[in-house]
Nucleic acid binder design. Structure first.
Length: 419
RNA sequence: GCGGCCGUAGUUCAGUUGGUAGAACUCCAGAUUGUGGUUCUGGCUGUCGCGGGUUCGAAUCCCGUCGGUCGCCCCA
């Protein structure tokens, strides 16, 4: 069997693509309403843009190769390095805070599995140049708005918020050296539930103090408190929970971090993000505080499918022109005119019979069929509403310049058909 | 990188203890060349994922490989 996509890559047939578009619409709308502006960068970047940040070991997970100019290049696995590059190049042209969003297609060379392919689309929102936790709250609110536009609510998902800064202080207090803290957090990221023997094995003496810290609800850091207030005021208090165990795998996060999970806890994280205040400088740019999140299409689609919230964004033609073969030329003229006037118009380009043309009109999902037949000799056309099977008569007139006007116009066809 | 399950027409699948392939739907063409969601008729397509092995003979058994899927590792 030929014609399969490469492993981990997906074909989007029109019906699949329309559901993808409905995700994009929600993402764009939430971004727009929240004051983010869209940007885009190259899909292909220099390999070193990624190894600089994460070291050589990331190469194994990258889709990389040598181009014809002998450059080591990689398909972008994430957008942040590109964002950092672009911000570094022109951030003086933009008043802070910078609020940018993008919907990049990202790539990873990894084993495909549920909710995870070698390619996916990811909604990214970032705020650069604002170090206060209010910026983190703003991102969380934008994220929630996006999810709500897709029909999801606090009953379906939960935003788990944590604070890496708090962990830094806590671990320092426990005498954990700076270079060992990331490792402890990584272990923590894997553990679930209450302290167990497994905790002790992996965390040693830290198991008990960490367990106690997780239990106490009063341990809210200043940052978490600010986020709680701002997110509450923005209207998303019931979407969020403090969960200190969320620490995110990546080493570069510095402050507030968060993840979105389905309430049932069956799927991978739907979205994740947090503050990365030193990353831009590390990538060779300006020392600007930054925070952001990413939400992939794969897990989100699974969740929406499960909830039956997935909607297709279909765009059928409004009008399908059906023509008798003798009137074909006139039909084309009418179609062209309607299109220039802003209508979505389709017709059967083959030499289809009357019946076939009507069938195609139906299959295309058009609302109206405009029948161009023998009545045309008297300056008349028939308009048919396909769903109701009702039809009426309208008139057309050709002017000297070739323009064709219909009487009544498309907006009033419903009346013609009803009478 | 490791393990479980799977791989048959465009699609969803059936194929009985191994005897060289079927259904439904879709699509295309028709049912006295102007009215479509029903009905009827006819038609198209498969190297049964690929390669090798066992056998007189394999879609069916064995091995390998590629791909899919689920999980582990890892992470966005």
């Amino acid at each position: 069997m030929t014609g399969q996509p490469l492993p981990g890559f997906r074909d989007f047939f029109p019906e699949d693509h329309s559901t993808l578009r409905s995700l994009f619409s929600a993402w764009r709308e939430a971004s727009r309403r929240s004051g983010f502006v869209e940007f885009e960068g190259p899909e292909l970047e220099a390999l070193e843009l990624y190894t600089e940040k994460s070291g050589e070991e990331i190469i194994g997970q990258l889709y990389h190769f040598k181009d014809k100019g002998d450059r080591e290049v990689a398909l972008r696995p994430e957008l942040t390095p590109t964002l950092a590059r672009m911000v570094a190049a022109r951030h003086r042209n933009y008043r802070k805070p910078i609020k940018w969003f993008s919907i990049p297609r990202l790539f990873r060379y990894e084993r495909p599995q549920r909710g995870r392919h070698r390619e996916h689309y990811q909604w990214n929102c970032d705020i650069v140049g604002e170090k206060g936790a209010a910026a983190d709250a703003e991102l969380i609110a934008t994220l929630c708005l996006g999810l709500s536009l897709l029909g999801l609510g606090p009953k379906d998902v939960v935003v788990k918020v944590s604070d890496r800064g708090w962990w830094d202080l806590f671990l320092a207090d426990q005498g954990v050296k700076e270079e060992k803290r990331a490792e402890v957090l990584r272990i923590l990221d894997k553990l679930e539930g209450a302290p167990t023997e497994e905790w002790k094995k992996k965390l040693g003496a830290l198991a008990e103090p960490i367990g106690n810290a997780l239990d106490s609800k009063i341990a809210l850091s200043e940052g978490l408190e600010q986020v709680r207030q701002a997110v509450g005021a923005l209207g998303y208090a019931d979407w969020c929970e403090v969960d200190l165990r969320i620490v995110r795998g990546l080493a570069y996060y510095t402050g507030i971090v968060f993840e979105v999970h389905d309430r049932a806890g069956k799927l991978r994280a739907v979205a994740g993000g947090g503050r990365y205040d030193h990353l831009l400088k590390k990538l060779g740019g300006e020392d600007l505080p930054a925070t952001g999140f990413g939400m992939g299409d794969a897990v989100l689609s699974e969740l929406l499918t499960e909830k039956k919230f997935l909607r297709a964004e279909s765009t059928p033609p409004a009008i399908f022109v059906v023509a008798e073969s003798a009137e074909r030329n006139l039909a084309l003229q009418i179609a062209g005119n309607l299109r220039r006037n802003g209508e979505a118009v389709d017709y059967d380009p083959g030499s289809g019979k009357w019946v076939k043309q009507l069938e195609l009109a139906e299959a295309r999902g058009a609302r109206w069929a405009l029948l161009v037949g023998r009545e045309a000799a008297q300056g008349k056309l028939l308009v048919k509403e396909l769903a109701t099977r009702k039809q009426g008569e309208i008139a057309f007139r050709k002017s000297a310049d070739g323009a064709i006007s219909l009487e009544p116009g498309v907006g009033d066809w419903a009346k013609v058909v009803a009478s």
